[in-house]
């Protein structure tokens, strides 16, 4: 019980400092970066990009092979 009260008091104290904190510091996604989770996003985005590029290359090659066939 005692610890719960102490905890909530602490929470209120921390929360009350937040508005002041936000004024002098612009919030950026630093937490995400410090956790390293941003790399997950990068991995996903890079995979999507790479997938699309590989598909584009395969289309390009297909067109090339049709061009070759037509020349014969």
């Amino acid at each position: 019980m005692q610890t719960k009260k102490l905890f909530s008091l602490l929470l209120v104290m921390i929360l009350s400092t937040l508005p002041g904190f936000a004024q002098d510091q612009i919030e950026m996604a630093d937490l995400m970066r410090s956790n390293g989770k941003i790399y997950v996003v990068v991995a996903v985005a890079a995979t999507v990009m790479l997938g699309l590029i590989i598909y584009l290359i395969s289309i390009d090659r297909k067109v090339s092979s049709i061009e070759k066939k037509l020349k014969k």
């Binding site: 612009i26 950026m28 996604a29 941003i38 790399y39 996003v41 990068v42 985005a45 590029i53």
Partner: peptide, 25 residues
């Protein structure tokens, strides 16, 4: 093209950006 686009989707998220109000990330 491939190298630049891969650079964009990785460094676009990881690179340093100026911290600005409203815009943020």
């Amino acid at each position: 093209c491939i190298i630049l686009l891969m650079y964009t989707v990785t460094m676009g998220f990881l690179g340093d950006v100026p911290a600005m109000a409203i815009l943020n990330e």
